[in-house]
Amino acid sequence: PQEEYKKRAKKALKKGDEDTAREALKRAGLSPDQAEEFIRRFL
């Protein structure tokens, strides 16, 4: 589910792994723009 992928993305970002985070967010159904926004907000 979407929440699970978002959790995964946050874990990846904590490790500084933005590529894995983007992949997880893409799987969560976010557009690339939404994924970038999510990452920017998190960092």
Rank of each mutant, 00 (worst) to 15 (best):
E3I: 08
D17G: 03
L25D: 00
K26A: 14
E23P: 00
A21M: 02
L25F: 02
S31L: 07
E36A: 08
L25N: 00
K15Y: 12
R40N: 07
K6F: 15
I39E: 00
D33L: 11
Q34R: 05
A24S: 08
R22C: 04
L43Q: 11
E23Y: 05
E37K: 06
L13S: 01
E36C: 06
K6A: 07
A24C: 14
F38I: 04
A24Q: 13
A21R: 00
P32F: 10
S31M: 06
A21I: 02
L13Y: 02
D33P: 07
K26H: 12
L30N: 01
G29W: 02
K6E: 11
G16Q: 05
L30W: 07
K6G: 04
A21W: 02
P1N: 14
E37I: 07
A24R: 03
A12T: 01
F38C: 07
E23F: 04
A21F: 02
Y5E: 10
R8Q: 15
I39G: 00
L13P: 01
K15D: 15
A21Y: 02
K11W: 08
K14N: 09
T20N: 07
D19G: 10
R22M: 06
L43F: 12
A35I: 15
E3D: 12
T20S: 12
G29L: 04
R27Q: 14
L13T: 01
K6V: 15
F42C: 09
K26I: 12
A12K: 02
E18N: 08
K15A: 14
A24G: 03
D17K: 05
K14R: 14
A21T: 02
K10W: 13
L13G: 01
A35C: 10
G16S: 04
E18Q: 13
R8Y: 11
A35N: 01
E37T: 05
L30C: 08
K11M: 12
R22T: 03
K11N: 13
E23N: 07
K7A: 13
D33Y: 08
P32R: 10
K15M: 14
R22W: 06
A21K: 01
Q2W: 13
K7T: 10
R27K: 13
A21E: 00
A12I: 03
Y5S: 05
D19M: 12
G16D: 04
R41I: 10
R27E: 12
P1E: 14
L30F: 12
A21G: 03
A12R: 03
D33R: 10
F42T: 07
R41H: 10
A28V: 03
R22Q: 03
F38W: 10
R27F: 10
L43N: 09
E4S: 08
R8S: 10
D17Y: 04
A21L: 02
E4L: 09
Y5Q: 08
L30Q: 02
K14E: 15
A12E: 03
R22P: 00
S31N: 09
G16P: 02
A24P: 00
E18M: 15
L13M: 04
L43E: 06
A28S: 05
